[in-house]
Amino acid sequence: MERRTFLRAAVIGSSATAFSGSLWLGAAHADPAQPGAGPYGALGSADANGVRLPAGFRSRVVARTGQKVAGTSYTWHPAPDGGACYADGTGWIYVSNSEVEPSGGAGAIRFSSTGAITGAYRILSSTRQNCAGGKTPWNTWLSCEEVDRGYVYETDPWGVKSAVRRDAMGRFKHEAAAADPDRKVIYLTEDVSDGCFYRFIPSTWGNLASGRLEVLKMGSGTSGPVTWAKVPDPSGASKSTRSQVSGAKRFDGGEGCYYADGVCYFTTKGDNRVWRYDAAASTLALAYDDSLVTGGSAPLTGVDNITGTASGDLFVAEDGGSMDICVITRENVVAPFLRLTGQSGSEITGPAFSPDGSRLYFSSQRGTSGSSSGGITYEVTGPFRT
């Protein structure tokens, strides 16, 4: 996936609506985040793994494509992409997609309470170009196929239950998913230049076998109220899902998706934006837009995968750019948190925090080689704020 290498000169029709709720602090009508000093300080020199980190943080490599995960018989998959963490007794599990075609699928690494690797295994096979996805409140992983008329597969992070294809969630070029337990819906992004933003309303919360797929509708601006409309044919058999509802809002390359405290944040790579959907108020606004950065160059470009912390900070990975993971703080400041060196032919994927928030996992999809066979998966530990 290639990012645009120029800043847009778009005119924004109206200012962003307020950041509200416990996740964000700030003025009643905050503008999109602007560069500033991050909460962790400046990046240091590259460590032995080629990772630049703030003082007090350290990295380790936990897996490499084509090699056995340490102490296990599982060979780590190519092109590691979207990921999530799951509590596992006193330890945890990190799940990672494989964005290759035709084999795709997903794998997992199990960790003890001390962070030691205790297992690794496959949880999904024989699917196509599994890019991102999302974690459900009932502790399954939704692995999304980023192909035309792709599917969503519900998988078991423990690798015990067989994966299930969830046809009712629609067939389109899926990217990411985020569960909203308050409204009992799953939000979905679509990775095409004229894609849509969807929500799936299961017939029964906790069971994704059936339900209603809806698409977001809004005027031409970047902020304001939204509505939702049913997609008549989620299978996209006769017409693509994004073309079935008149007035569906278009988004330029939907990517990551993350829900917390009544708000769903999602990213679009074609215009380097982070969007903020306030589910309680049914409004949409911009949390970040690189073309609206003032007083210097934008620190975050190639906007891609996104996650967050209990402290209210968002962590956004770059596809290209400076190969950074940037933090957008609860104080509305955007700054680099880490940077990979010597990997300009790759992208950062799958950021996810361990259940206690003390460890950040992510991958360089193509590593130093620039090939899907060169993927590297990392862990970063340090004084993340809570």
Rank of each mutant, 00 (worst) to 15 (best):
R3N: 12
R4H: 14
A9K: 15
V11A: 13
A16S: 15
A18K: 10
F19G: 06
L25M: 14
A27H: 12
A27K: 14
A27I: 11
H29R: 14
P35R: 04
G38T: 00
G38Y: 06
L53V: 10
G56V: 04
F57Q: 08
R60S: 13
T65D: 04
T72H: 07
T75Y: 08
W76D: 03
W76A: 01
H77F: 12
G83R: 11
V95D: 03
N97E: 06
S98D: 12
S98Q: 08
S98N: 07
S98R: 10
S103H: 09
A108N: 02
A108Q: 01
S113E: 15
A116T: 13
A116W: 09
I117L: 05
R122S: 12
T127A: 10
A132H: 03
G134V: 09
K135S: 13
N139R: 11
S143P: 01
S143Q: 00
D148T: 13
R149S: 02
E154Q: 15
W158P: 10
S162L: 08
S162D: 14
D167N: 08
E175L: 00
A178N: 05
D182T: 15
L188T: 03
E190A: 01
D191F: 08
S193G: 13
D194S: 15
S203W: 00
W205H: 02
G206K: 02
N207H: 07
S210L: 04
E214C: 03
S220T: 14
S223W: 01
T227L: 02
A229Y: 00
D233A: 04
S238I: 06
S238C: 02
S240V: 04
T241K: 09
R242I: 11
S243M: 14
Q244G: 05
V245M: 11
S246R: 05
K249V: 02
R250M: 04
G262V: 07
G262F: 04
V263E: 03
V263C: 13
V263G: 09
F266A: 00
N272M: 02
Y277I: 00
L286S: 05
A287P: 05
V293N: 01
T294F: 06
S297Q: 14
P299V: 08
P299E: 10
D304V: 02
I306S: 04
D313I: 00
D319T: 11
S322D: 15
M323L: 09
D324P: 07
V327D: 03
P336S: 07
F337I: 12
L338W: 05
L340M: 07
G342C: 10
S344L: 09
S346K: 09
E347K: 12
T349W: 02
F353I: 03
F353G: 04
S363Q: 07
Q365D: 05
Q365M: 12
G367W: 06
T368P: 08
S371V: 00
Y378I: 09
P383W: 11
T386E: 14
